[in-house]
């Protein structure tokens, strides 16, 4: 058997054989497939926008007439507005709690390997790899014993626990670019550990913190199944109200809510990404 020499442009592909043609065809098909998958991922989500502007209560696509009435309905029906406000409240409180716990944890985890690091990291991501229904049942049961089921603090704790992995993962990515010698430099100039953190580390990772907060907030704001078990029936979150609409009184109001949720998601993700890039730039500039 002769070994074929690399030939053709830049010697990347030994050309001219049948399998190569098949491979190239495969590559073209894979690219076409990827394009179709991208469309299939995004297009169904976009369908809710025209439906939300429907002039009738039937969800025909495309709608036959147009109106803003379903957006008006959202803002005038108290069940919807209360649910949205409650979701904002839970989202903000649980994100603050997740940040308070997650910032020190991420700083600890970002440092070189120490005993117990793997176990702690696994503990933090564990809630993400278990079906949420198990978490929901478990929390309902445990929190009922100490009177937290059906209360705002109970839901805040549950959502903080679920947001924590996202917060820690984002902060770890930000801290990976942080040069620890900067803190060392501050210390050598006489700064206490806390002062060094507050005046050197914190400003540099602040965009990372904002980014982590946005994703933690989204995780809480969209969470459904745990909230379903944790809320009182007269004080529900937006996803639960959405679920009621989806199951029992389907009209385009939920399409209007869905549209606004998508816009909120896009804005939060865009802002989070902007912050991440800004943070990365800031950290690059400040490498000792």
């Amino acid at each position: 058997m002769t070994v074929s020499q690399p030939q053709g442009s830049a010697g990347r592909r030994p050309g001219g054989r049948l399998p190569d043609v098949a491979y190239r065809l495969g590559a073209v098909l894979a690219r076409l497939g990827a394009a179709l998958i991208v469309v299939a991922m995004v297009a169904p989500i976009l369908v809710v926008f025209p439906i939300s502007l429907s002039g009738t209560r039937y969800m025909t696509f495309p709608p036959t007439s147009w109106s803003w009435q379903w957006y008006t309905a959202f803002f005038t029906v108290p069940e919807w507005t209360w649910a949205a406000l409650y979701s904002f409240q839970i989202g903000i409180l649980s994100t603050l709690l997740a940040l308070a716990l997650g910032i020190p944890a991420a700083i600890g985890l970002s440092q070189a390997g120490f005993r117990g690091k793997g176990a702690v990291a696994a503990l933090f991501v564990a809630p993400l790899v278990l079906p949420l229904i198990i978490v929901a049942i478990a929390l309902y049961f445990a929190f009922a014993r100490i009177g937290l089921t059906g209360t705002t603090p109970g839901l805040v704790i549950a959502h903080a626990m679920l947001s924590l992995p996202f917060v820690i993962v984002v902060l770890l990515a930000a801290l990976a670019q942080f040069d620890p010698r900067l803190e060392k430099a501050a210390a050598s100039l006489g700064a206490s550990r806390f002062t060094a953190f507050r005046t050197v580390t914190l400003p540099l990772i602040r965009p990372g913190i904002v980014s982590a907060a946005l994703l933690g907030f989204l995780a809480s704001f969209n969470e459904f199944i745990v909230a379903l078990f944790m809320v009182r029936s007269d004080r529900v979150t937006l996803p639960i109200q959405f679920w009621k609409g989806l199951r029992f009184e389907t009209n385009p109001t939920i399409a209007a809510v869905a549209s606004m949720l998508i816009v909120l998601t896009v804005l939060s993700l865009g802002l989070a990404e902007l912050m991440r890039m800004r943070g990365a730039r800031r950290l690059r500039r400040n490498r000792a």
């Binding site: 169904p44 989500i45 439906i51 969800m59 969209n222 996803p239 399409a255 869905a258 949720l261």
Partner: peptide
């Protein structure tokens, strides 16, 4: 673009995505 097409759905509520499919696959759907 492709990363966005993956990350945006990931962070969109699964209720919203499921609802979108009820429209797409619905009797009066596209």
């Amino acid at each position: 673009l492709m990363l966005g097409a993956v990350v945006l759905p990931l962070w969109t509520s699964d209720l919203v995505r499921t609802f979108a499919w009820t429209i797409v696959l619905g009797r009066r759907g596209p």
